[in-house]
């Protein structure tokens, strides 16, 4: 198994290399350039444009720009933002905590919602529970986050006054206040994932409930709670872990919308602003960091899977 993990980590190198080429090409293929956007409709002086392009090395051939960029990236330098002139690594570092907290918080909320709901819906066969479950998962999956986020703000912040918006105190300063201020955005982000994981949980629990070992557990007179939580859930959670791993990655991309609606200065917003302004260094840096995070999460899930499921033997 040790060999398997090492192999997976070595595989990351070509994957990240291909990603860097793809990221760089896509960013430079979109029409428009940062110098043009920087000047907007205020000036059209070609000399000024040329001076700005020269300053950021945008006048060099694209493959030269790539090699200069990758060389610096390998030294841990992501370059300077064209629009703000600040180091990209600093911009990214400033914003990563917001996105990570939002993602982890949402993941925790999604699991806290999905597993009990899914299990309940599998075990209790009465009409009301089924309706509630179907309603929750259908709405959760189909309502887009920019709409649900805006509605939550209007309902819980503007009308009920339960949550503050826009202000995000640091976790270290005041953990409770921090968790409270991040609740609405995390909940908005969690909903679609929660709905999906709940469905998988329900299906999976239903499947194991027909297994012979469950019948055995029941017939030897075990308490129903013990049957559900120890015998059924433990085995039903395997597919749930796989799906959760995939969703952990999707949650990272979901933060883009949620960060805009809730005005959270995270990585997603940094990336979107960079696209609009054609700030190549920032865009490349942000995408590279996000994609690396995504690959690492995938790796972690794969490794975790080996531990959880001893039936599967890799190499």
């Amino acid at each position: 198994m040790g060999f398997y993990i090492v192999k997976r980590i070595i595989w990351l190198i070509p994957v990240l290399f291909v990603i860097s080429v793809v990221v760089f090409s896509i960013v430079h293929l979109i029409p428009g350039d940062p110098a043009t956007v920087l000047l907007g409709t205020e000036a059209a002086d070609p000399a000024l444009l040329k001076a700005i392009k020269q300053k950021y090395g945008l006048d060099k051939p694209i493959y030269v720009q790539y090699f200069l960029w990758i060389q610096r990236v390998l030294h841990g330098d992501l370059g300077l933002s064209v629009t703000t002139g600040r180091p990209v690594s600093k911009l990214v570092a400033e914003r990563i905590p917001y996105t990570l907290e939002l993602g982890l918080y949402a993941l925790a909320l999604a699991l806290l919602l999905a597993i009990p709901l899914g299990t309940l819906a599998a075990v209790r066969k009465n009409q009301a529970v089924q309706w509630l479950f179907q309603g929750f998962t259908l709405l959760g999956l189909s309502i887009p986050r920019f709409w649900s986020g805006t509605m939550f703000i209007l309902l819980f912040s503007v009308h009920l006054g339960w949550f503050t918006i826009v202000n995000f105190p640091s976790f270290m300063g005041d953990p409770l206040d921090n968790l409270r201020s991040f609740f609405l955005p995390a909940f908005t982000l969690a909903l679609p994932a929660a709905a999906s994981i709940a469905r998988i949980t329900r299906a999976s629990v239903l499947e194991v409930s027909n297994m012979e070992y469950v019948l055995t557990a029941r017939s030897k007179g075990l308490d129903e709670r013990r049957v559900v939580f120890i015998h059924m859930l433990k085995n039903a959670l395997l597919p749930v872990i796989t799906v959760t791993g995939i969703y952990a990655g999707y949650l990272l991309s979901g933060t883009i919308v949620v960060e805009k609606v809730f005005a959270i200065p995270g990585l997603g917003r940094l990336g979107v602003d960079a696209i609009l302004q054609r700030d190549y260094p920032v865009l490349q840096g942000t995408v590279l960091v996000v994609v690396t995070l995504f690959t690492l999460v995938n790796l972690a899930v794969d490794i975790l899977y080996v531990f959880v499921n001893p039936k599967i033997r890799y190499v």
């Binding site: 703000i153 209007l154 912040s157 917003r269």
Partner: peptide, 14 residues
């Protein structure tokens, strides 16, 4: 900076 105009209005309201 609050990029979404509707959130901007809500933040003034709250």
């Amino acid at each position: 900076q609050i990029p979404d105009p509707s959130t901007l209005r809500s933040a003034l309201r709250t």
